[in-house]
């Protein structure tokens, strides 16, 4: 099965650095989920806007996730600049066209809503046994109750964007440590789902499957240099005690640059606070 590539959106800021990749399309988010890339939903959910548990698009991907998707060919990057929109809309004919198209679309949508609402109204009246007749105030009420929807996906930025070749490099420069990506890849190769882990004092937390249904088992620390870095005893105590109380295992990770294969370079050690004796 050939998968259509998911579009991830990055914006190159005024200072030349890229923002984190965002995904706005629900179908794309679903595809990513099938790949075990969950990201973090960040936007307010309009129907229940006063809470932080259930959030909506955009889906924010970490730098590791974005690079992994791009390198594996699962995704392509749609690059824009903060000024992209104004530059495009400076072209008046395009602006006119988009504006007209939006109006048409809105009218069509409104008409659909009107038809539906009238139908519902008639059904309701029939149920109550009231004879239907045309009333002007009903129409006015109906007009004012039509719903105008703000889209998630852009029609302006959809195509004809500048191609920035070094997106991957720019995203890579966002890694807080060099080894992060190797650790991420290694965890992905084990079929695990990886998500940000600062809440548990690690770099990543790892799920055996979709976080919607499975508990996470591991807190993975930021990678150390396997040959050089000392392991701080306090880190082991802190990490393992915290992880054990939240029913996880503390995983130390290290990068051994003397190994030739990338896959071999990543080393893991699991530490559990045993409370023995």
């Amino acid at each position: 099965m050939v998968l259509e590539r998911v579009v991830i959106n990055v914006s190159v800021g005024d200072d030349g650095t890229v923002t984190n990749a965002l995904v706005f399309n629900l179908k794309d988010i679903r595809k990513l989920r099938d790949q075990g890339i969950c990201g973090v939903l960040c936007g307010s959910l309009p129907t229940i806007a006063q809470q932080n548990v259930f959030l909506s698009v955009p889906l924010r991907l970490s730098a590791e996730e974005a690079v992994w998707l791009l390198e594996k060919g699962y995704a392509k990057a749609n690059v824009s600049r903060p000024s992209s929109i104004s530059e495009k809309l400076r072209d008046e004919s395009l602006a006119n066209e988009l504006s007209e198209r939006a109006k048409l679309k809105m009218e069509r949508e409104f008409e659909r809503q009107r038809v539906y609402k009238r139908e519902q109204h008639v059904l309701k009246l029939r149920k109550l046994g009231i004879e239907e007749k045309y009333r002007n105030e009903d129409e006015q009420l109906l007009e004012s109750s039509l719903f105008y929807e703000v889209m998630n996906d852009s029609t302006i930025l959809r195509d004809g964007n500048e191609v920035v070749e070094d997106v991957v490099d720019r995203l890579r420069s966002k890694y807080s440590r060099d080894g992060n990506f190797k650790v991420f890849c290694s965890l992905k190769n084990h079929g695990l789902v990886v998500s940000p882990g600062a809440r548990f004092g690690g770099k990543f937390i790892v799920y055996p499957g979709d976080p919607l249904r499975y508990h996470s088992h591991m807190v993975v620390s930021s990678p150390l240099d396997y040959r050089q870095d000392p392991i701080d005893f306090r880190d082991i105590i802190n990490g393992s005690r915290l992880s054990t109380t939240v029913k996880k295992i503390w995983v130390l990770s290290g990068i051994d640059t003397e190994e030739e294969q990338d896959e071999e370079q990543v080393k893991f050690f699991s530490i559990e606070w045993a409370g023995f004796g």
Partner: peptide
């Protein structure tokens, strides 16, 4: 004047830097 409706993606593309986006979150 011509008004063009913006989508959420358009609005997010207007962030000038990652720091500004983080501030927003």
């Amino acid at each position: 004047f011509v008004e063009v409706p913006l989508s959420m993606q358009d609005v997010y593309s207007l962030f000038r830097s990652q720091a500004e986006m983080d501030l927003y979150f």
